[in-house]
């Protein structure tokens, strides 16, 4: 088995991770706040209107970053699960626990904003389009992992079981996406076409990039905060957490 550098092992210790990430939080929070504020104001206030969709297209500044991270979040969760199973790293299981509800929430945001966008654009909140359907399945996959985690009373069994499920889901995601795509080409309704986004004007695209960067910072921030809470919860009987509780932060 490959040997890891020392920092990897040190970071894997919940206590080190806790004190190290504590220093990152303000920076991440600041970056997320600035990027999200700039991106929102720029995107909603200053980016040009879309020729066909008018102002309603501006919801992409929320929708696209959320959809990006919804999918990336599943892989974060699965990689954490794999690390936890293979190297028996407790910290990775805590990351998985924190990543699952966060990813599910972002998937929901993507679905919800997509529905809101659909109403003015295609006159309906919901269509059984390939991408929307895949996103819904992704949401179900997240819910399965969360439900399984909560069903176990033992934390250790819960961690391992949801890690296995996350990995099985990862193996299946490409298959599910491809088969939903194929299914959609069979049943493609003639009226609505949303598979190909038109190439965007740079003035519209730049705020989107800022928003995506902001969402990534926000995701990292919330993931770290969730993991830190989970660390405190699972290590609540250790001395360093007791000391932390006495001295404050």
């Amino acid at each position: 088995m490959a040997r890891f550098p020392e920092w990897f092992h040190r970071l894997g210790a919940p206590k080190t991770f806790y004190s190290m990430t504590g220093k990152w939080l303000p920076w991440l929070a600041g970056a997320a706040a600035i990027l999200l504020c700039v991106g929102t104001v720029w995107g909603l206030g200053f980016a040009p209107q879309d020729a066909k969709q008018g102002n309603s297209f501006r919801i992409i500044y929320i929708h696209v970053p959320a959809a990006f991270l919804a999918l990336a979040g599943y892989y974060v969760m699965a990689v954490a699960g794999a690390v936890g199973l293979i190297w028996k790293m407790k910290l990775a299981h805590m990351v998985l626990k924190a990543a699952a509800p966060l990813g599910a929430a972002l998937t929901f945001v993507a679905l919800f904003t997509g529905a809101l966008w659909g109403k003015p654009t295609w006159g309906t909140y919901w269509v059984w389009d390939a991408r929307i359907t895949s996103m819904l399945v992704l949401f179900f996959l997240y819910l399965g992992v969360i439900a399984l985690h909560y069903a176990y009373s033992s934390t250790e069994a819960a961690s391992k079981a949801s890690a296995v499920l996350a990995l099985v889901g990862t193996a299946n995601i490409p298959i599910i996406y491809k088969s939903v795509d194929w299914w959609y080409t069979l049943h493609q309704p003639a009226t609505i076409k949303l598979t190909q986004a038109p190439s965007m004007h740079p003035d519209m695209f730049k705020p989107l990039l800022v928003m995506i960067a902001g969402f990534y910072c926000f995701y990292a921030l919330v993931l770290l905060m969730g993991t830190r809470t989970e660390i405190l919860h699972r290590e609540r009987r250790t001395r360093w957490v007791a000391d932390l509780a006495k001295t404050g932060y």
Partner: peptide, 12 residues
């Protein structure tokens, strides 16, 4: 709940 999403390609 956990198995049904994985069933979908087979159903399709």
């Amino acid at each position: 709940l956990i198995v049904m999403p994985l069933y979908m390609p087979v159903l399709i």
